[in-house]
């Protein structure tokens, strides 16, 4: 319990540091977002309007400490400000619209590719020295392919030339989002192509890591003893070799979970997918600081949450990490 509280305290401090950085960074960047916004109006605004805008974006001439306190107050109220590019939509609304798509597509794919990759890796390591070793060069090649290039080729072949899959978007325009077969079918159809691209290009990473750990673990004495005891191949594979070999991969998995949000940009831009990565891409292009800040905040939280999950998984899978047991 003490160990758990220490972890929680660690995460709170990390979150505080990250959020504070998130506050400082835009203020350190040369060029003032509001000035940039005002430029769009080509000086047609009166001083009152300018003041109102600055007030609106929290860029008053208050000292930085007051701004910081103000920033936290608004953050705790769930107020990330108003987007510049889609003015006056609140940032929270844009993030709220994008997040389910990103988590749905990239989150599910990351988990799937981890499960399939480590599963195959365990199998290939178990059957080492047979024909299954042929998986390794193939998946290594697929992993070496530049990701956006692979995405574009997939789109070109399957969406443009063969027309098997839709070209872009999260669902067929005109459908009303909701829990009906039409909409869900359309969502699945639209997600299929990006999913294949993500899984195919990332599976090799998990496969190779798991295979090597598996081979290392299989030469441990406890696996030999398990075989001597006459345990079934399935039990040796899962409880003796597999679970021990999986532990190092978990840390990598936690990191990749954290990068779901941040790493979604390329996929979503290539496939025109309406997720948070696409929103970030547009925010960067339009120098939409409040939106960027909001998304960075979400990324920070996602990375920390993923690490917490990995910590908990580790504790469940590896009794040696349980303190004071």
């Amino acid at each position: 319990m003490k160990g758990f509280l220490r972890r929680v305290a660690f995460y709170l401090i990390t979150a505080w540091a990250a959020i504070t950085l998130n506050f400082l960074l835009p203020r350190l960047i040369p060029g003032d977002p509001v000035t940039r916004m005002l430029d769009r109006f080509h000086g047609q605004l009166g001083p009152n309007a300018v003041f109102a805008l600055r007030k609106l974006f929290g860029q008053t001439s208050d000292n930085i400490w007051d701004q910081y306190v103000d920033y936290w107050t608004r953050l705790l109220h769930g107020d990330f400000g108003v987007s510049f590019t889609s003015y006056p939509t609140p940032v929270t609304t844009i993030i709220g619209q994008g997040l389910p798509w990103t988590l749905g597509l990239i989150g599910v794919c990351t988990v799937l590719s981890f499960i399939i990759g480590t599963g195959l890796g365990a199998f290939v390591g178990w059957k080492r020295g047979t024909w299954v070793d042929g998986f390794i060069p193939v998946t290594t090649f697929l992993t070496s392919i530049p990701y956006f290039w692979f995405g574009l080729i997939v789109v070109y072949v399957f969406a443009v030339v063969l027309r098997w899959f839709p070209l872009s978007g999260g669902y067929t325009p005109g459908l009303t989002p909701g829990f009906n077969t039409d909409f869900i079918g359309s969502v699945v159809l639209h997600a299929l192509l990006p999913s294949i691209a993500i899984i195919v290009s990332s599976i090799g990473y998990w496969l190779l890591g798991m295979r090597n750990m598996m081979i290392t673990t299989l030469s441990e004495d406890y696996v030999l003893l398990a075989r001597a005891k006459g345990l079934s191949a399935r039990r040796i594979l899962s409880t003796y070799a597999g679970r021990n070999a999986l532990l190092p991969s978990l840390a990598g998995f936690a990191l990749s979970l954290g990068f779901i949000v941040g790493g979604s940009i390329i996929t979503e831009v290539v496939f025109n997918y309406p997720g948070i990565g696409y929103a970030l891409f547009q925010a960067v292009q339009g120098q939409d600081y409040p939106l960027m800040q909001g998304i960075f905040f979400i990324i920070t939280i996602a990375v920390l949450a993923a690490n917490l999950v990995a910590d908990l998984l580790y504790v469940i899978l590896d009794p040696r990490t349980r303190q004071g047991a």
Partner: peptide
């Protein structure tokens, strides 16, 4: 086996 530390699965009771 010679080394009980290596011959027992570390994650199993």
């Amino acid at each position: 086996f010679q080394s009980a530390m290596n011959a027992l699965n570390p994650i199993l009771r």
